[in-house]
Nucleic acid binder design. Structure first.
Length: 375
RNA sequence: GUGGGUAUGGCGCAGUUGGCUAGCGCGCCAGAUUGUGGCUCUGGAGGCCGUGGGUUCGAGUCCCACUAUCCACC
């Protein structure tokens, strides 16, 4: 259930209530693809880092350990010891990003596993079944994410198929939620808007999927190579055509700047691999721009990653020490960097929520952008 | 001491029958990365080819001496 608390322009401050608790939005979902945040960050750590909701992946968990296994062990929440909401991505994007060998047909997609190369078939029904087995809080629709370079004709045809797939997802989820042995009978389905960089196709699609009255909607297929301005422009045009009394989720985005721009345009949910993946490689986010900790200038730097930061890394350790750990490929180095970045992202969202609450998001955004673009 | 091998950027190596501005991996320096394959990619710096002679139009490549180092034998 989505409850709007306050708005400023198009920016929305709301809370989203689920069977696994309430999420304050705008929110950043911490990405734990295989039911774990890479970098040895535990669910206990995540709570300390201010994480409200995690994201895991249907495709990855289907391949390993297998959604049936997770189901037998009581579902994802019990399995990974996390009692807050979990959103599972449908696997649609992996078909686009991982599978070099794939065949997209009306019934679904045939492709090869990235782990052992075996043939896998996934369609709307399979994706829903897997996500139902995982028993996540929110399941994403199985969609196709066409390349931002795809031509108009292909995109239109792909989007039409994604719509048909969405209807199949909805039917299948309703069926699964009514079954006796389903773990989470309140599982929610979010639809996904596609249309590459063609605003009219996206708007038309947004209208069509809005009619299905799903509990939330997302915008997919952005930040996949097109210029940032194009993404912002599409958000400007498409978000108003999605239901305003439901959460809007911008998939896979993004940088702190992208998030500020997204919130301004009415986005509630974000997720991105940046804080964790970049953290693992020593690329750290601070209020004074990004710090590339592997750069030689930090060899003798005895200060924390960010002065005044209250994260577990900054409270105790110096840049020089963490840099050394990364160079030595010690797990602790990655762990501290990932924790700092997740803390930064979650803190950023908290500040954004406070700013909207206080009616000063516009000025907050301006100041924040100036700060984080320092270098 | 004798015989044999090896000496090429920080490290490990390629360098064809002598032929244009000497390559490669790792490391180093810098940059990318947007619904995660603990990756990957893109640039860059760095070498009087152990030293000294010689042969040749031309030598990292051939010859001589020296030095260093490794192996075997005494």
């Amino acid at each position: 259930m989505y409850k709007l608390i306050k708005t400023e322009g198009r920016a929305k401050r709301a809370e989203f209530t689920t069977v696994h608790g309430t999420v304050q939005t705008p929110v950043f979902m911490n990405v734990g693809t295989v039911a774990a945040i890479k970098g040895a960050v535990s669910t206990e750590d995540l709570k300390q880092l201010g994480c409200q909701i995690q994201l895991s992946n249907t495709y990855h968990l289907h391949v390993r350990p297998g959604d049936e296994v997770v189901k037998k062990l009581g579902g994802l929440h019990k399995f990974m010891v996390w009692d807050r909401p979990i959103l599972t991505d449908s696997g649609g994007f992996q078909v686009f990003s991982l599978a070099s060998l794939r065949k997209i047909k009306e019934e679904g997609v045939y492709f090869n596993s990235h782990v052992d190369g075996r043939k896998i078939f996934m369609g709307p029904e399979q994706s829903m079944q897997i996500q139902s087995n995982l028993a996540s809080t929110i399941a994403m629709a199985f969609d196709e994410c066409p390349s931002s370079l795809a031509d108009r004709e292909y995109v239109q045809q792909s989007v039409d198929r994604t719509t048909r797939w969405l209807i199949r997802c909805k039917d299948e989820m309703e069926r699964l939620n009514s079954l006796e042995d389903t773990i989470n009978k309140e599982q929610m389905l979010f639809g996904i808007n596609q249309g590459a960089i063609f605003p009219d196709i996206r708007i038309e699609h947004a209208k069509r999927i809005s009619e299905l009255d799903l509990p939330g909607y997302s915008i997919g297929g952005l930040a996949v190579g097109e210029p940032n301005e194009v993404m912002y422009d599409i958000l400007d045009r498409v978000v108003p055509h999605l239901p305003q009394n439901k959460p809007t989720y911008l998939m896979g985005v993004g940088t702190p700047k992208d998030i500020l721009e997204g919130v301004e345009r009415g986005v509630d949910f974000f997720d991105c691999v940046y804080p964790s993946r970049n953290g693992r490689h020593g690329h750290l986010y601070t209020n004074h721009g990004t710090v590339r900790l592997l750069n030689a200038q930090y060899e003798l730097d005895d200060s924390p990653i960010e002065e005044g930061c209250d994260c577990p890394a900054c409270r105790h350790y110096s840049r020089a020490y963490i840099r050394h750990l990364l160079k030595a490929k010690e797990m602790l180095g990655m762990r501290l960097c990932v924790m700092h970045n997740l803390y930064f992202y979650n803190k950023l969202m908290e500040e954004i929520r406070d700013a909207i609450d206080n009616g000063c998001f516009a000025s907050y955004k301006k100041e924040k952008l100036e700060k984080i673009s320092e270098q």
